[in-house]
């Protein structure tokens, strides 16, 4: 939408490196037998996605991603692995893994087909006049102030609802995990 550095060879190189890193880390997460190592691989996937968010002009989301996923969710998973003492038994697939592989392959094929068959270029902002395009670029060069305004104006109701959801889930987690 916003013309920028996407066309440079350096950007493409960084993009492909991050993409390969994320896919390899996700693959390792599924196939490493040691759950602790799988949790580290999961953190690498989260970091790679944070890198993509930076490339997509979503710096605020990238920071939130590092804070919540890499900082909190990964640690939570590691603690759960340690507390359940099944580390030595590890990350074992069940007997029907072949069927699941087939099903997942079909899903991936369908998703990729839909993505590649959709004429996305019809949805670009190429028909805009110069003034709107300038305002659009100005918004996307530094989107965080606009994002903050949107969160407390247009989207204030979902924002409050999701905060109540988070509070309820955390209290529920405390109640469920409590020693009786």
């Amino acid at each position: 939408m916003v013309s920028g550095s996407e066309t440079s060879a350096f950007f493409a190189m960084v993009w492909w490196t991050t993409a390969v890193a994320s896919v390899v880390a996700a693959w390792l997460m599924v196939f490493l037998r040691d759950l602790l190592k799988a949790a580290i691989a999961m953190a690498v996937v989260f970091l790679a996605v944070a890198g993509f968010l930076v490339m997509l002009n979503a710096e605020f989301l990238a920071v939130v991603q590092v804070l919540i996923y890499v900082g909190a969710v990964s640690i939570l998973v590691v603690f759960a692995v340690l507390l359940t003492r099944d580390v030595f038994q590890g990350n074992i697939p069940h007997a029907h893994q072949g069927w699941v592989f087939l099903l997942t392959g079909v899903v991936l094929f369908l998703l990729a087909f839909i993505v590649l068959a959709t004429p996305w270029h019809l949805l670009s902002a190429s028909g805009m006049d110069a003034a709107s395009r300038g305002a659009l670029v100005a918004t996307w060069v530094n989107p965080t102030p606009t994002l903050g305004r949107l969160l407390v104006r247009e989207f204030v109701l979902p924002f409050e609802a999701v905060s109540v959801v988070l509070l309820a889930a955390l209290i529920g987690a405390l109640v469920i995990a409590r020693e009786r």
Binding site: A26, V77, I92
Partner: peptide, 22 residues
Amino acid sequence: VLSAILFSIGMFGVLSMRNLIA
């Protein structure tokens, strides 16, 4: 497409693993 690949790998992990944490 990258998102679809990550989604499929995650889905494979959810459906094929025995460990709840995995």
